[in-house]
């Protein structure tokens, strides 16, 4: 796709975020085009999670501008809800609703937000559970599933709202090693289907094979970014080099 055709889904311009006196984001600029996949990496405390949490306004930025699919994020509740309907999110700790069965987890938001009929929601939820390869778990409680299964349910739950964009906040960090690939496989499928994705992750293999753009953050700043080929094989910044050495050495 040529540069001119690039339809911007997310624009961040000089975004600052403070927690008290601590500055978590320092003048962050980032654009994500439709269908692009961005992987954000960096040491813990570098502001990666804060960055994506600002995009669906789980955190409010203090300065700068964030535009998501044409909606500028301001204080207006209407805009926030509009953005959240279009932006799905998958969390490190799954955050499935423990008091609802798997299928009810998927059906809740369409019922409350889209107000679509129950039969339609159920059909769609089942289709998505098939897509993440666990339709047989539909009537179980989240606590009865493995971590990998729970995270796949969480992805299906986000998809139920037909998002244009999905944010992943370290989706595999809380998983046992043998379950990581089943979650990554689902994410790779989504990427192939053209979903716009921002993924905070240290899965460098995933970044290399899926990302259009890899972003390295440290101390609240984007230190370096680029396509995976350049980023991994030819990092320019010393902090990036050190980080890559540490993460790839084991």
């Amino acid at each position: 796709m040529s540069k001119a055709d690039r339809q911007l889904m997310i624009e961040l311009e000089n975004v600052d975020k403070f927690f008290g006196s601590f500055q978590a984001l320092k003048g962050v600029n980032l654009t994500v085009g439709k269908g692009e996949k961005v992987v954000v990496c960096g040491p813990s405390g570098s502001g990666k999670s804060t960055l994506i949490r600002c995009i669906n306004r789980l955190e409010q930025h203090n300065n700068g501008k964030i535009v998501v699919n044409g909606h500028e994020l301001t204080g207006a509740v209407k805009d926030i809800d509009a953005v959240r309907r279009e932006v799905g999110m998958v969390f490190q700790s799954f955050n499935l609703f423990p008091h609802l069965t798997v299928i009810d987890n998927l059906m809740l938001a369409p019922k409350l937000v889209r107000k679509t009929p129950k039969a339609e929601n159920r059909k769609k939820a089942m289709r998505l559970l098939e897509r993440v390869k666990i339709p047989e778990q539909a009537d179980k409680w989240p606590s009865q599933l493995s971590g990998g299964q729970q995270q796949r349910v969480a992805i299906a739950r986000a998809l139920c709202m037909n998002p244009e964009i999905i944010l992943f906040d370290e989706p595999t960090s809380a998983l046992d090693p043998e379950m990581i690939s089943e979650v990554l496989d689902v994410m790779i499928d989504l990427a192939r289907e053209g979903m716009t994705m921002i993924c905070v992750s240290h899965e460098m293999g995933f970044a290399r094979s899926v990302a259009d753009n890899v972003v390295f953050m440290d101390e609240g700043e984007i230190v370096e970014s680029g396509p995976p080929g350049t980023f991994f094989d030819n990092p320019k910044n010393d902090r990036t080099k050190l980080f890559l050495k540490q993460i790839l050495s084991h």
Binding site: N56, L58, L96, P98, L108, A109, M161
Partner: peptide, 12 residues
């Protein structure tokens, strides 16, 4: 995290 997950889904 649960109320955040619900917020992220657009639930009021």
């Amino acid at each position: 995290g649960l109320t955040e997950a619900a917020a992220a889904l657009g639930i009021s």
